[in-house]
Amino acid sequence: MRRKLKLSLDSDVTWKEISPGGVISEAGNAEKFKTGDWRSIRPVWIVEKCTQCMLCFPVCPDSSIPVDAEGKRTEFDFDHCKGCGVCAQVCPFDAIEMTEN
C-alpha cells in the first residue's frame, strides 16, 4: 500500500507533517511563497496614462501584473512583485513610475 504524499507548505507545518526531502506534490505552488517583501522600490500604475498596450505584463519576471478575463491589465500583485522596475522601463506612456517602497 503506497502512502499518499500530503502537500505541506503552510508556514505552521510541523516536522512530523512535512514532506520528506522537500518533495512538492502540487503544481502552481510558487504563489504560496510570498516574495513581495524583498522589494525596496515599488511600481505605481498611473491608470489615466495607461493605454492597455500590454507591453508591460509579458516582461514581468514573476507574474505580478495580472490580466483579467477581458485581456486588460489590473493592479500589481504586491505579494509577489519584487520591484525590479522592468515594467516601468518598457512602458512607452510613462504609466508606471517607480517610487520608494
Binding site: S11, V13, T14, G21
Partner: peptide, 14 residues
C-alpha cells in the same frame, strides 16, 4: 517536484 528551494520557513523541519 524534487529538490526545490527550501527557505527559512521549512528547511529546519525537513
Amino acid at each position: 517536484s524534487v529538490g526545490p528551494l527550501d527557505s527559512v520557513s521549512h528547511y529546519f523541519e525537513h
